[in-house]
Design a protein around this nucleic acid. Structure first.
Lengths: 275, 275
DNA sequence: CAGAGCGGTTCCATTATTCGGAACTCGGTT
DNA sequence: AACCGAGTTCCGAATAATGGAACCGCTCTG
């Protein structure tokens, strides 16, 4: 599995939450449990926390009785709780494209025989909201629920390319331009140039920019008026295919994107005027 | 004070139980947003909330700045935020079988050509932690992140059948025995009888007990010592196949369950002695 | 076996936060 | 102009959070 570089890279979304107020502090604790990526003991938590022992203890207690954390009495460890999973499922269902898109993604994946991703823009980063594996799955970073950078993924660039000028400026200012691979785009200028090319041709490539060996073709999902709802991509590896070969899927991707857009607009994302 | 009664089963799933501290109240609000299942206006929330306007307003404000809710300024609505999705992803990765099982599920699904579910027991109910759709997906209730009843699903019964006596008694006491279909098992006696049969044959059927037309074969995922880690199932519909036909997949399911178990035990679920 | 050390838990006076009724703002409607 | 209802802000009173210190039940050690 790809668990190696957990916090290796830059923080994508962060937003550096204040942590003011009791609720904010509690959520900060929750985040800290999450970043451990494994069940964690009280003492370990205390070591990374800015709160004194008694205070942290009460937080952990509260979160546990509220079901946001679970306490394993045998091993004396805390882990993220099931209430979180339920809430997140609701979040995923109500405020993501995934429910309307699922069927279309399945069809697209079956048709092209490769892995398909559905992503949405979350501030400055890409949130993968769904993924359908190819018949022969490849090991790769993305997973439903994960966030990734916008400037060096196919879905990210596809969405950026169709953002209104003002929003784009903001979002570009928040990109880290960290060099993940030798092919990563690492300057604002190079990115803007590429975004223009993407607008011209109507789709984006990922040329091993985020992960070595992983390539994709991506297209945005747009409303009639051109507002960006999300993006989808067909992903494969250099060991299996080439960008030129992937490009033949563009019409299929376009049809899928259009179908998702139409369904989404009538269903839950009415086409308001962009600001 | 003894800390035993602290965990004494507040029935989760319905609010109004906790809500003690500030954090609890905030989470209660979050739950209420979730149960709407769609973006919701302040007024709607106020109507169902036990808090006065000003108080609710501050909660919603706080949750929004903390990223647990997002506010759509255009339509003046609140929806569950992306921070939840990120947290839940972490929860899913750290405390579910899904990460180790994913690849095995993909392989199993490809091999048998049907939908495959991975589930875990969460108190008295079944939490679907992963799902791989068949080539031709069927419309059905289950989804990764959803919870379902234990007494009338294949995965639920498979897990119950291998629970230690004491735990089983507790869990059975919490089943609702609601009749979902004409085939639903609706009595404790019938359920216990069936669990015995399941232990004898080593796998469980779902005979359209939860959803009409949906059938499955399920097996538990057990450690060496027989502790229940989860369950997996191969699911299809009566319009496509029969239980007899599904039964041929039992050896494949067994092999998959074993593979997942072996990997999980070494990785994150060490085989402690059951209480 | 006394005693130090350590992870975890509880106590409680102090203090900072939250509470919420009421007053206000801002569109739209009569 | 007056009214209305949804949403927002204010501020004294009420309440909940805070965290230093003490405590518990271990294990390790001299």
């Amino acid at each position: 599995m790809d668990n190696a570089p957990r916090n290796a890279g830059p923080k994508y979304g962060s937003a550096a939450t204040s942590g003011a107020g009791t609720v904010g502090k509690a959520l900060e604790v929750l985040d800290q449990v999450a970043t451990f990526g494994r069940p964690v003991r009280f003492g370990e938590l205390l070591a990374v926390s800015r709160f004194p022992k008694a205070t942290l203890y009460r937080f952990v207690q509260t979160l546990a009785t509220e079901g946001m954390l679970t306490f394993d009495a045998d091993r004396q460890t805390y882990a993220l709780g099931v209430r979180l999973v339920r809430l997140a499922h609701a979040a995923w269902e109500t405020s993501s494209l995934a429910p309307v898109a699922r069927q279309h993604l399945d069809e697209l994946s079956a048709r092209v025989g490769e892995t398909v991703h559905l992503a949405q823009l979350d501030h400055a980063s890409v949130l993968y909201v769904d993924k359908v594996n190819a018949r022969e799955p490849l090991p790769m970073y993305s997973q439903a629920g994960k966030v990734g950078p916008a400037y060096c993924t196919g879905v990210g660039k596809a969405m950026l390319a169709y953002l209104p000028q003002r929003e784009l400026d903001v979002v570009i200012g928040q990109q880290s331009f960290h060099r993940f691979t030798p092919h990563t785009v690492t300057s604002e200028f190079a990115l803007r140039t590429e975004l223009e090319a993407i607008r011209d041709q109507g789709f984006a490539f990922d040329r091993e920019e985020h992960e070595p060996g992983i390539i994709c073709v991506a297209m945005p999902i747009l409303t009639e008026r051109g507002r960006v709802l999300g993006a989808l991509s067909v992903t494969s590896s250099t060991s299996r295919t080439t960008l030129q070969a992937l490009e033949v899927h563009v019409p299929a991707i376009r049809a899928t994107a259009r179908a998702i857009s139409e369904e989404a607009v009538q269903w839950r994302f009415p086409d308001t005027v962009p600001i």
